[in-house]
C-alpha cells in the first residue's frame, strides 16, 4: 500500500524503521505532518480543498470554497464521525483531535502522555489507520471515520484483542493500554497474522512504562490465532519448591 497524494493519513510502514508516532517518521502522525501553524496557513491558501482531500472539503464546518477564511479565535462548530456516530461540538480551531475527544466530548479513553507524538498513548484509528491524535487537529479529522478505544467493544462483547489483553495481563497501570490496543488493532487490520518481528515494529511507537510488552506480544499472537510461545521448563529437579 502506498500513500496517494490525496491520502490524508499515510499508512503504517511495517518493516521499515519509520514507525508512526516516533521521531523517525513524523510525517505519519497527521496528514502530511501538518503543524498547527502550517495548518492554519494552508487552510487560508488557495488549493486548500485539494490539500484536505475532497471528502474533507465536503464536510468541513467552515465553507472554504469561497476563498480564504479566518477561523477563530471564536470556537467553530465541527462535525466528527466517531465510532460510527456523528457528533457535533464547538472548539477552538487550534484544538487537537485528542483534546476534542477528551475535553469536548468527554471521551477520556485516549490518554495524553507526551503530547508530541512520541509515545502512542493517544492513538486512534482514522479511516482504519493508526494516528497519534495529539498530533492531528480536530478540524483535520472532519470527514474521516475515527475509531477510539471506546468504540472497539460491541456492547458487552469485547474485541478479540481486548479479550486477549485481559487474559494475558497485558497491562499493569493501564494508562498506555488504550493506545497500545489501538496500535495492536491497526497492526492486525493490516497484518492479520503478524510475525514477532512485525509485532515489535508495529508496537514500537507505543511506550509502556510498567513493562507489559511481553504479555502484549502474547495477546497479539492469541488474537491472531497464533501459538503463544512458552518458556522452557524449569529443570525437573525443581518442581516442588525452592528448598533444593
Amino acid at each position: 500500500m502506498t500513500p496517494s497524494q490525496h491520502d490524508p493519513v499515510p499508512p503504517r510502514t511495517h518493516g521499515s524503521d519509520a514507525v508512526p508516532g516516533t521521531p523517525a517518521d513524523r510525517s505519519a502522525v497527521g496528514p502530511r505532518g501538518v503543524s498547527r501553524r502550517s495548518f492554519i496557513s494552508t487552510l487560508g491558501a488557495s488549493g486548500a480543498a485539494a490539500a484536505l482531500g475532497g471528502q474533507a472539503e465536503a464536510r468541513l464546518a467552515a465553507p472554504i470554497e469561497d476563498g480564504p477564511v479566518v477561523l477563530g479565535p471564536e470556537p467553530v462548530e465541527v462535525a466528527l464521525t466517531i465510532n460510527g456516530r456523528a457528533v457535533k461540538t464547538k472548539l477552538d480551531p487550534a484544538t487537537t483531535l485528542l483534546d476534542a475527544l477528551r475535553l469536548n466530548l468527554q471521551m477520556t479513553g485516549s490518554k495524553e502522555v507526551c503530547d508530541r507524538g512520541s509515545c502512542g498513548g493517544c492513538s486512534v484509528l482514522v479511516d482504519g489507520r493508526l494516528v497519534a491524535s495529539c498530533m492531528m487537529l480536530a478540524l483535520d479529522a472532519v470527514g474521516h471515520d475515527i475509531t477510539t478505544i471506546e468504540g472497539l467493544a460491541q456492547g458487552d462483547t469485547l474485541d478479540p484483542i481486548q479479550e486477549a489483553f485481559v487474559r494475558y495481563d497485558a497491562f499493569q497501570c493501564g494508562f498506555c493500554t488504550p493506545g497500545m490496543i489501538m496500535a495492536c488493532k491497526a497492526l492486525l487490520n493490516e497484518t492479520p497474522k503478524p510475525t514477532m518481528e512485525q509485532i515489535r515494529k508495529g508496537l514500537s511507537g507505543n511506550i509502556c512504562r510498567c513493562g507489559a510488552y511481553t504479555n502484549v506480544f502474547s495477546a497479539v499472537l492469541e488474537a491472531s490465532d497464533q501459538a503463544v510461545p512458552v518458556d522452557q521448563p524449569v529443570p525437573a529437579d525443581h518442581t516442588d519448591g525452592g528448598g533444593a
Partner: peptide
C-alpha cells in the same frame, strides 16, 4: 481488566 481495556477506567487526569 475490562475497565482498562475499554477506556472506561477513569484516572485522575
Amino acid at each position: 481488566s475490562v475497565a482498562k481495556v475499554t477506556g472506561a477506567a477513569k484516572y485522575g487526569r
